[in-house]
Computed example of a mutant assay.
Amino acid sequence: MHDPNCLFCRIAKGEIPSRKVYEDEEVFAFHDIHPGAPVHFLMIPKKHVASLAQVSAEDAPLLGRMLALAPKLALEQGCNPYPEGGYRVVVNTGTEGGQEVHHLHLHVMGGPRPWLKG
């Protein structure tokens, strides 16, 4: 379930320090080290899945939980409420999709504008 050479697996296991936002038995969320917005954190499954392209039907409940959790965490981290406020949820997939770490992760980005698109 874990890849010992994966940066995000090692972060989720506590082997590499991070600024934790949230943790439960299946999900770990932490601040991005190079934020592109006033609020920018990553949500990862603790189970190693290389990318959205490798997701199977058995992963659907986990992904649903992650997406349902994103709004709560976004507000807790400082995003303003919908509809005037808001945030973005981005999943980069593969090299051409901008994925740099090959462990599925959701970027949650928001906060007062302007901030760089990306």
Score class of each variant (00 low, 15 high):
Ala74Thr: 01
His102Cys: 06
Pro35Arg: 05
Tyr82Ser: 08
Trp115Cys: 01
Asp3Arg: 11
Pro61Glu: 15
Leu67Ile: 13
Lys72Val: 07
Met1Gly: 14
Lys117Ser: 12
Glu25Phe: 04
Leu42Ala: 07
Cys6Tyr: 06
Ala60Asn: 08
Gly111Thr: 00
Ile11Asn: 06
Val101Gly: 06
Leu52Asn: 02
Pro45Glu: 14
Pro4Gly: 00
Lys13Cys: 02
Val101Ala: 09
Pro114His: 10
Ser51Val: 02
Val91Pro: 01
Ala37Ser: 15
Pro38Val: 04
Val21Met: 08
Leu62Pro: 12
Leu116Met: 10
Pro17Val: 07
Arg10Glu: 05
Ile11Gly: 01
His107Gly: 09
Ala53Pro: 00
His102Val: 13
Glu84Asn: 07
Gly64Arg: 15
Arg65Ile: 02
Leu106Asp: 07
Val39Cys: 06
Pro4Val: 02
Trp115His: 14
Gly64His: 15
Asp3His: 11
Val101Gln: 10
Glu25Ala: 15
His107Phe: 13
Gln99Cys: 13
Gln54Met: 13
Ser51Met: 08
Phe8Ile: 03
Leu104Cys: 11
Lys13Asn: 03
His48Met: 10
Val21Leu: 11
Lys72Ala: 03
Ile44Cys: 03
Ala29Pro: 04
Met66Asp: 00
Arg19Gln: 14
Arg88Cys: 02
Lys117Val: 14
Glu58Gly: 15
Tyr87Trp: 08
Val90Glu: 00
Glu84Lys: 11
Thr93Gln: 08
Ala68Phe: 10
Asp32Pro: 06
Gln99Gly: 08
His105Met: 12
Pro114Tyr: 04
His34Val: 03
Val108Pro: 00
Cys9Leu: 01
Pro71Lys: 13
Met66Gly: 02
Gly97Ile: 03
Trp115Gly: 00
Met66Glu: 00
Gln99Leu: 12
Leu75Gln: 07
Glu23Pro: 07
Gly97Phe: 05
Ser18Leu: 09
Val89Arg: 10
Val27Gly: 00
Val27Met: 09
Glu84Ala: 14
Leu75Thr: 08
Phe41His: 04
Ile11Leu: 08
Thr93Cys: 13
Pro4Ile: 04
Val89Leu: 13
Leu67His: 14
Thr93Met: 06
Ala74Arg: 06
Val39Trp: 04
Pro83Tyr: 06
Asn92Arg: 14
Leu7Thr: 12
